[in-house]
């Protein structure tokens, strides 16, 4: 069974045509991989489907805009994967 990171990295590689071997847990989706908000909708769609969750993008965006969170908290892939794991666990609970 592949890890959350492997699944997310494969989605990003396929969706955005980014070489898989350049995507690491420390990659920032926006700053390092150059993913824009429109491409991120495709990624969110694929992640939602793959994990059976709904990434709270609106909430995250609001928190970043309000200065209550940094983009690193949600868009560095290891952090994104941790959020996904939390959402999956919450759904299973």
């Amino acid at each position: 069974m592949s890890s959350t990171f492997d699944t997310v990295a494969n989605i990003i590689a396929e969706t955005c045509d980014i070489p898989r071997d350049t995507i690491t847990p420390d990659s920032h989706a926006i700053d390092d991989l150059g993913i824009d908000s429109l491409d991120f909708l495709d990624i969110a769609f694929a992640i939602d489907k793959a994990f059976g969750i709904k990434l709270p993008l609106e909430q995250w965006t609001q928190e970043v805009n309000d200065g209550k969170a940094t983009t690193e908290q949600y868009f560095v892939l290891k952090n994104l994967c941790a959020r996904i794991d939390e959402l999956v666990a919450a759904k299973a609970a």
Partner: peptide, 9 residues
Amino acid sequence: LHEGSGFVV
């Protein structure tokens, strides 16, 4: 097909 957070497909 899908309703996400702030988007619909």
